[in-house]
Design a protein around this nucleic acid. Structure first.
Length: 466
RNA sequence: GGAGCCAUCGCCAAGCGGUAAGGCCGCAGCCUGCAAAGCUGCUAUCCCCGGUUCAAAUCCGGGUGGCUCCUCCA
């Protein structure tokens, strides 16, 4: 397995700190609002990573956090009159539901900031004791970036702050412009406040990830975990700061490999709430099947930016349809062995920093080759069984193609319509038998208007929802 | 102002020094009562200008264009 490490900016062979195991921590969402397609893409990218590692034989432990203490959540509490818990539990449940619809496997550990306060407090205390952090007059605790000689080595954004150009707001008592809050003391009007030895308040943004990782992973003398992942926007300052805290608190590096996914863009611009161009996952799922969205959002390499377009989504659906048509053609049956050449090609592709384009091309070629072979020997049972095994393998590795193929093409068609379609098909078949082609074609046109496309085969007429 | 990423067929997209994968669209065929589906065949020298090399889309230098980070952000 080769992984592109964003710190070293090169592909590296994956050599886990514990043989045969992979520990992964991915930055999850701040739960104050619905997830958008960008959250989906990140979740999907790391889902591909964990699935690939699992198929390659690694025992994977994946942690993905929920940030449930945050300024934006507090703001929402104040505006809505609801409790923080009500708000965060609502969005966490919604997030998980939507990710399920996309076929994202659940993380093994889903830590929350509110459940990690002891670990957070302990780490801040350690940093204070070791003199890597300082407390200012209002009770805030800051990390002193000047004490960490390795600060900047993660994001390579060491650059000495040009006072005039930096967009970072300078707090009077901060010793260095890049110092960041580990702990924010509560100013009286705030509702949430946790007692600690240094002050009553709440954690800064970066500390929770570091603390959770220490809490849940054993690590080694060199690293806490194997892979740390997240969106490209988190590289600086979030991951730089996480790395600094952990390094100074534990005496070793946080992660051996750092992976960052590219953005989902709309019209060539990053999708973000501040730009107001967000496409919420719930809206997308109302329009498109989760599996199609999954295929689409994963169809471009995770490190590239992804420009969302409905036309391309339709192209993705067509490609997925072809796989399911093959599955329909070889069903029902019991899968035999995955074709070894096919299996190797897929694993080689995904093992190369998740080269999904090669993987999808490999699948397209397998589908075409199988269809061709089936054209010349339609009754070849062994071929069909192998195809079923191949498709099951695709499902395990990439997370699509797992549905029953006839139902895949009937998503969104209710029972009444199914009955009607069957009646029309029966009538058409009678008309065809009687060589009344005008009538049979008229029925086909009617079905087309209903959004149903039909195909005559040796086994009878099949239909699909377009 | 600082730090990066990217630029390949009409569209999406691989390629990581050895002579351009795959998908969509289009065209021509096979199949079909006609279609649909499926299959076959056809369609690019890689933003521009220099350089390195026997050999470059791939490396180096300079342009041009787009995006991102330095503020919450997947």
């Amino acid at each position: 397995m080769q992984i592109y490490d964003s710190v070293q900016k090169t592909k590296l062979p994956f050599e886990p700190i514990h043989k045969g195991k992979a520990s992964i921590y991915v930055c999850g969402p701040t739960v104050y609002d619905d997830a958008h397609l960008g959250h989906a893409r990140s979740a999907l990218a790391f889902d591909l990573l964990t699935r690939t590692l699992k198929v390659l034989g690694y025992t994977v432990t994946l942690a993905k956090n929920f940030t449930d203490i945050d300024d934006k959540i507090i703001k929402k509490v104040q505006q809505s009159g609801k409790s923080m818990e009500e708000i965060t539990s609502f969005y966490i449940a919604r997030y998980l539901e939507e990710m399920d619809a996309l076929g994202v496997q659940r993380a093994d550990i889903e830590p929350k900031a509110t459940e990690s306060l002891h670990a957070i407090e302990a780490m801040i205390q350690t940093l204070l004791d070791k003199d890597f952090a300082y407390r200012i007059s209002n009770g805030d605790v800051y990390f002193d970036t000047s004490k960490d000689s390795a600060y900047g080595t993660i994001s390579h954004q060491v650059g000495q702050d040009d006072e005039n150009q930096s967009r970072v707001a300078h707090t009077e008592e901060k010793r260095n412009p890049k110092d960041f809050a580990l702990w924010k003391a509560c100013k009286n009007e705030e509702e949430i406040c946790f007692e600690t030895a240094f002050s009553a308040g709440r954690p800064g943004w970066h500390i929770e990830c570091s603390a959770m990782i220490e809490k849940h992973f054993s690590g080694t003398e060199n690293y806490s975990i194997d892979i740390h992942g997240g969106g490209a926007d988190l590289l600086f300052p979030h991951h730089e700061n996480e790395a600094a805290q952990s390094r100074c608190a534990t005496g070793h590096e946080l992660a051996k490999y750092w992976m960052h996914n590219g953005f989902v863009q709309i019209d060539g611009e990053k999708m973000s709430k501040s730009l107001g161009n967000s496409f919420f996952l719930k809206d997308a799922l109302a329009l498109y099947d989760g599996e199609v969205l999954r295929y689409y959002l994963n169809s471009v390499h995770y490190r590239n930016d992804f420009n969302f377009s409905e036309q391309e989504l339709q192209v993705a659906k067509k490609r997925l349809d072809k796989l399911y048509r093959l599955k329909k053609r070889v069903s029902p049956g019991t899968p035999s062995q995955v074709n070894s050449v096919f299996k190797k090609a897929l694993l080689d592709a995904m093992g190369d920093d998740l080269n999904i384009s090669i993987a999808l091309a490999t699948i397209d070629e397998m589908v075409a080759a199988t269809n061709e072979a089936l054209d010349s020997s339609p009754q070849n049972k062994a071929l069909k069984k192998e195809a079923l095994a191949n498709i099951a393998f695709i499902d395990a590795l990439l997370g699509f193609g797992g549905k029953e193929p006839f139902s895949y093409f009937q998503i969104g068609v209710d029972e009444a319509l199914k009955m009607k379609i069957q009646t029309m098909l029966n009538e058409r078949s009678e008309a065809k038998k009687a060589k009344d082609f005008a009538r049979s074609d008229a029925i086909r046109d009617e079905l087309t208007h209903l959004g149903i496309s039909i195909m005559d085969t040796a086994e009878g007429t099949l239909w699909e929802k377009v």
